[in-house]
Computed example of a mutant assay.
Amino acid sequence: MSAGSVATEPVLTEVVDGVLVVTINRPEARNAINTSTAEAMGAAMDRLDSDPSLTAGIITGAGGTFCAGMDLKAFLAGERPSIPGRGFAGIVEQPSAKPLIAAIEGYALAGGFEIALACDMIVAAEDVKLGLPEVKRGLVAAGGGLMRLPQRVPYHLAMEWALTGAMITAEQAHQVSLVNRLTPKGGALEAALELGRAIAANGPLAVRASKQVIVEAPEWGRAEMFDKQREITLPVRESEDAREGATAFKEKRAPAGRGAERSERSGGTFPG
């Protein structure tokens, strides 16, 4: 593919050390989401879910900004920036089953913030601005932001941000643990890659199952929660990955194979 054709792709993907880096590539439109971008993002999520060599994903934006939300010009022209099954931007209703990190520079507003909230971790440059300004336009943030934000920050703060449409600084978001890591301007992707590599160094089956438990556990009743957890974790415990991980721990060596469990190897006992 020529350099000119690559530049026109709405979403770019690159594999780095077992991490799929997904870049929204519409800088001329502040990476706003139209139909083709949503379709490409959905395809990237499908790839991440189906490729056993990939353990985690990063969502970022080209040109120094993350995403300004829905492309209003495309919307007024009749486009719908969502796809069946995955929703807006190909991600907000069904993110990848594998861990996702948002690497944010510039702005993540409206649907752009909702994409970030669909991720499991957020790394942001210190000058980043976040927010759900829909109410200022007489609209409702219906891409998951109103449901996910109260799960990530205190209830009263989520209400204030959602009902005022306030612009949130990266520092404010970091103070309430909405942002995992703050970086200097231009450093979000590299810091996200550092975090992604740390995840990808672990057993892929264990990583995926751990995310599933964390995501699904709030919906489980007290009487059933350990049975539900066992359904997810027992296949991992009985896998070749787990056996190799335990053996490698005992022999004080790195586990062999892509899917091997990793653990601390400096003394102690292997966690059961």
Rank of each mutant, 00 (worst) to 15 (best):
E126L: 08
E240G: 01
D46M: 00
V6Q: 13
A29G: 05
A77E: 15
M1K: 12
Q151Y: 05
E231K: 15
M1P: 10
V92P: 02
E93K: 08
V92I: 09
R86Y: 02
L54S: 13
W161F: 11
T13M: 14
G144A: 02
A206G: 13
S36K: 13
T269D: 12
G245Y: 03
A206N: 02
G144C: 04
T60L: 12
A40P: 05
D120G: 07
G111P: 01
I58P: 10
G42I: 03
I122E: 08
V19G: 06
A141I: 05
A142H: 03
I168W: 00
P204E: 08
A89N: 01
S53F: 09
G63I: 11
G112I: 07
S266G: 12
F75P: 02
F75D: 01
G4Y: 14
A110C: 15
G203K: 03
D51S: 07
T164Y: 06
S266T: 14
F66R: 05
L100Q: 00
A162L: 11
A188T: 13
E244M: 09
A38L: 04
D127S: 13
R243M: 05
G144H: 09
S82P: 04
T60W: 04
G165F: 05
N180R: 15
M45G: 06
L12E: 11
D49P: 07
R181I: 15
G18R: 05
T8A: 10
E114N: 01
E244D: 03
I101Q: 01
G145D: 02
Q151T: 11
D51F: 01
P133T: 10
L12T: 13
M121V: 15
D120W: 01
C67M: 04
E244C: 07
L20A: 07
V123T: 06
A162R: 06
A166V: 12
A124C: 04
S5F: 10
K252I: 04
A108F: 04
G268Q: 09
W161Y: 12
G4I: 14
W220R: 08
P184M: 08
P27Q: 06
G196L: 10
G165R: 07
A110V: 03
A40M: 04
L48M: 11
V153Y: 02
V11S: 03
